[in-house]
Design a protein around this nucleic acid. Structure first.
Length: 376
DNA sequence: GAGACGTGGAC
DNA sequence: TGTCCAAGTCT
């Protein structure tokens, strides 16, 4: 078999590629909780969570999210803050808001029935070109190709085409992916298109790695034009910044509370979510933080310092956080995990062992807890 | 079409 | 206290 040329896959390549990939996927697919599931709602949740997010991070949220919101109706009926609380730590919180909105739309306007076709799915908020194809193929067996970062990398390497961020470059990849996806269901209990798409992504995620691809384990090595790394475009520069936050606790009888601050609704970054009160750097000069953590946001590495509440007579730190600021509120540590905390706040509170307290026993109790917390 | 939008793990 | 980046979408 000849390797694939610059013009892309021919019909011989297509048949061989499909066969090899499908066989490999059957043998090597990771066991993940959203695989082998026949509920379009669950497929949808998993696909949204997986957008630009590592499998390991999704594994920490997927089961709990579905326990809290087992059906699209449960999700549609939940208050937004509960949805955000369940999403806390996953990042890109707009995804959670859009998923919530879309669930409400499906329940209200479509009688709770998730559309079974990619072009209808595409109209839902938060469902773009990739996600509509993923849900349609995986949950409904539609013959439509997904193109995500994995698929693009695999196809660039297989064809030897140089990476270009142009409409023509994107179109080439889309065409190649479309040639490869199987045309229709072969049998009742199989899903050729869905399995093929997942196989393409699995190959990119576990074998055709961005750096140091494991070519010796690749099922389509024979066809591959490059058999190795393709040239990747240089990325933007990273920046670093130091920031400081206050960790202040108080006792209210047997209950421990921590001071939190709510971000403004107009904030572009994580609006309405809860974090620790920020301290100006000049207020903490020459002090020693009780904790240092790194927290990266897109292109910035934040070197975060956490300071405890000031002692008696310490005017400077105290003055840095006006007690009257109306965005401030005290939260009992027992219900922290039910609040829409930013990932950083969550990380710090976990690190300081303030979130290890046992939570509510059941989803119902948890919802009651959240409602109570949000009323205050 | 470029920029905004989170996070944590790997090296 | 450096850099990259993961199953994208929206504006």
């Amino acid at each position: 078999m000849d390797v694939v040329g610059k013009d892309g896959l021919d019909s011989t390549h297509v048949l061989a590629f499909r066969r090899k990939l499908t066989h490999w996927y059957r043998e090597h697919a990771r066991e993940l909780p959203w695989r082998g599931v026949h509920d379009p709602y669950k497929t949808w949740v998993s696909e949204v969570m997986l957008q630009q997010t590592r499998v390991a991070a999704v594994l920490e949220h997927y089961d709990r999210f579905l326990k809290l919101f087992p059906t699209i109706i449960a999700l549609a009926l939940a208050p937004e803050d509960e949805v955000l609380a369940a999403w806390s730590g996953l990042g890109y919180y707009r995804r959670a808001r859009m998923l919530h909105k879309a669930a409400q739309f499906v329940v209200k306007e479509l009688a709770g029935k998730i559309p079974g076709q990619s072009d209808e799915l595409r109209k839902l908020p938060g469902v773009g070109e990739y996600t509509c194809a993923a849900i349609a193929s995986i949950a409904f067996g539609e013959s439509i190709a997904v193109v995500d970062g994995n698929v693009e990398r695999v196809l660039l390497r297989v064809t030897g085409r140089a990476e270009e961020a142009t409409a023509a470059g994107k179109a080439f990849i889309r065409v190649q992916a479309g040639l490869l996806v199987p045309h229709k269901r072969v049998a009742h209990h199989s899903n050729a298109a869905g399995d093929h798409n997942q196989g393409m992504m699995e190959l990119g995620a576990t074998v055709c790695l961005p750096r140091g691809p494991l070519c010796l384990g690749c099922p389509v090595y024979d066809l591959c034009a490059t058999k190795g790394e393709h040239v990747t475009a240089p990325k933007g520069k990273q920046r670093s910044q130091t920031v400081a936050y206050l960790l202040e606790t108080r006792k209210d009888g047997a209950r421990t509370e921590v001071l939190l601050e709510r971000r403004g609704d107009e904030s572009s970054l994580m609006p309405g979510m809860l974090e620790l009160p920020m301290l100006p750097l000049d207020a903490v000069e020459e002090r020693e933080p009780i904790l240092r953590v790194r927290h990266s946001i897109t292109n910035t590495n934040y070197y975060v310092e956490i300071y405890t509440a000031p002692g008696m007579g310490d005017k400077k730190l105290r003055a840095a956080i006006p007690a009257a600021r109306e965005t401030l509120s005290w939260a009992g540590v027992g219900r922290l995990k039910e609040l829409p905390l930013t990932g950083l706040a969550r990380k710090v509170l976990m690190r300081m062992d303030l979130m290890g307290v046992a939570g509510p026993e059941s989803p119902e109790m948890m919802r009651d807890e959240v409602r109570k917390a949000l009323r205050e």
